[in-house]
Amino acid sequence: MASEKIIQVTDNDFEESVLKAELPVLVDFWAAWCGPCRAIAPVIDQLAEEYDGKVKIAKMNVDENPATPGRYGIRAIPTLILFKDGIVVEQITGAVGKAVIETALSKVV
């Protein structure tokens, strides 16, 4: 089950929900046809629960929202980008274990 704490972002609200957010935001760029995106999903769910109130965890479907992935030069998914104050702090490509993502998150919390 997907965590209710995960927010879905689109090209339209990316500026508002991610770049101007008060908390750091981790965005998971994914698509339905992507196996490793599916593999990483339970880890993203856990992080959303564990970092509630500290980091916003968001997902963006790259099929429905082509502009933002283009802007960040994303040509592989899953890609995780950690934003703080609208700036890219860390970018992780491919399915990685929880520990790798937590190392990245430790830079902002």
């Binding site: 490793p36 030069g73 994303i74 040509r75 890609t79 970018q91 490509t93 491919g94």
Partner: peptide, 14 residues
């Protein structure tokens, strides 16, 4: 890697 270098065609082909 992730900027044109890929190890997964089913992920990144599109």
């Amino acid at each position: 890697t992730g900027k044109g270098v890929s190890y997964c065609a089913t992920c990144d082909g599109p």
